[in-house]
């Protein structure tokens, strides 16, 4: 009886398992194929739309990619004797670009610190206002730097300060989010211990939370510093001073002054690579002991 049931039902079960498995595989393949198809369609049609709305076509422009760099490089090579002088000439602009990035990272990190502590559950001074501080940091993060920079340039005139404020606002929002993800994982025991001794909120944060999160915070700030150097160069291009501004001027002169553009390219490239290397070295050191 028992045997019969077992013997009778087992083949059916195996069959049904197999068929349901193949059905599942088929369905998954179908979904995967459909997703892939939609993705390819999106890519192709997107490319065509972008190509249509571009001033020059992709296929016409493709073989011209090298022309401009080749012009710049050949002219810079002809005037290579003057290159060190030009690099020295634009060095102050480079310092300004780096200063914009550094100051805005410092201010932004400070702002992000407050936003993160005030917007993290368990740490916030006013728990009811957590959503408010989160939304503030979301909005600050969403505003592209160029928006604030252009409006401030209108009000204050060109120069490094509009760029600095614009980048600092965005940095505060971006770091606020990353910081609060770290702060959420912070151990609350030291905070409770400090609270039991009657420590104020700022004392609890300074002595209880900051020592735990400092390595991560510094590491994120360094990463942000790399990003901000690029942002500050780009904002210079729309009139906010520094190396980007000089680059735009040098480009506007066109052929004959390509050596200046080349000098700026070299400075910018060198700076970005240099600070990337330094920052990644220190970030690795800071996060070394994290896994244990």
């Amino acid at each position: 009886m028992l045997d019969a049931t077992l013997g009778g039902s087992t083949p059916i079960t195996v069959d049904s398992i197999q068929s349901s498995y193949t059905a599942q595989v088929k369905r998954r393949r179908l979904y995967g194929g459909l997703t892939l198809l939609i993705f390819v369609l999106l890519m192709v049609s997107g490319f065509n739309v972008a190509d249509d709305r571009n001033a020059g076509g992709f296929w016409d422009g493709l073989h011209q990619i090298g022309d401009y760099p080749a012009d710049v490089l050949s002219e810079a090579w002809e005037k290579r004797a003057e290159l060190p002088g030009l690099v020295a000439k634009y060095f102050p602009a480079l310092v300004e670009t780096i200063n914009i990035a550094a100051v805005s990272t410092l201010i932004g990190a400070l702002g992000g610190l407050f936003l993160s502590l005030l917007g993290t559950r368990g740490l916030a001074k006013w728990p009811r206002l957590i959503p408010l501080f989160r939304r503030i940091s979301d909005i600050m993060r969403a505003v592209p730097e160029i928006v604030i920079a252009l409006m401030l340039i209108f009000v204050m005139g060109g120069g490094p300060v509009p760029a600095m404020i614009a980048i600092a606002i965005h940095t505060a929002g971006a770091l606020g989010k990353m910081f609060s993800e770290v702060a959420e994982n912070a151990d609350l025991k030291p905070v409770e211990g400090l609270a039991s001794t009657g420590a104020t909120w700022s004392q609890r944060m300074l002595l209880g939370v900051l020592p735990q999160v400092a390595p991560n915070y510094v590491s994120y700030s360094l990463l942000r510093f790399e990003v901000n150097i690029r942002a500050s160069a780009i904002l210079g291009f729309v009139g906010a001073g520094g190396l980007g501004y000089e680059l735009r001027n040098a480009m506007a002169w066109g052929p004959g002054r390509f050596d200046e553009a080349a000098a700026i390219f070299i400075l910018l490239f060198g700076t970005i690579v240099f600070f990337d290397q330094i920052s990644s070295h220190y970030r690795n050191r800071l996060t070394e002991g994290q896994g244990q």
Binding site: R53, G61, I65, D67, Y68, I234, F269, I272, D276
Partner: peptide, 21 residues
């Protein structure tokens, strides 16, 4: 990565002209 989007934009705009592409 080091050349950065700014310079790439400048270089590519010479070849492809302004636009989304």
């Amino acid at each position: 990565r080091g050349v950065d989007a700014l310079i790439w934009t400048v270089v590519l705009a010479r070849a492809f002209g302004p636009g989304p592409l």
